[in-house]
Design a protein around this nucleic acid. Structure first.
Length: 116
DNA sequence: CTGGTGACCATTA
DNA sequence: TTAATGGCCACCA
């Protein structure tokens, strides 16, 4: 987290985003925009990315299940490589650097099928 | 205040 | 399909 200057409202936004990410089931992924929308922050996908960037160390947040709207990993560098590895381990295929959002995208409905 | 940056996105060409 | 563009907004110098 940041300094003491962090305001209550934005901290609340971060908490909401983290809680939403926490709801993503194993074997599914969600886009930053989806996370923002489900957190009551429509159109603020960037904030979702920012909140994840500021994740507290060691929190049990499945940050790796959040990717961009095109089914690609946005996190650059070694962290991105790690994310790809974890997702594969959870059973999500990544072909050509992409994930099939139609099959593996999460839409907050537990009843929906992962496959057609 | 202003300007730059970023784990973004929808639209348009 | 990719690339450019404008919008979005917290954060920082």
């Amino acid at each position: 987290m940041q300094g003491v200057g962090m305001r209550v409202e934005q901290k609340d936004s971060y908490l909401r985003i983290w809680q939403t990410v926490l709801r993503i089931p194993r074997g599914r992924v969600a886009s930053y925009g989806t996370i923002a929308r489900l957190s009551g922050l429509p159109g603020q996908a960037r904030l979702a990315g920012y909140a994840l960037h500021n994740l507290p160390r060691g929190a049990g947040i499945p940050w790796h299940r959040v990717i961009n709207a095109m089914g690609r990993i946005s996190l650059p560098g070694a962290r991105g490589t790690e994310q790809e590895r974890i997702l594969r381990k959870e059973g999500i295929p990544i072909t050509g650097g992409r994930i099939d959002m139609v099959k593996y995208g999460w839409h907050s409905q537990s009843g929906k099928r992962a496959k057609k």
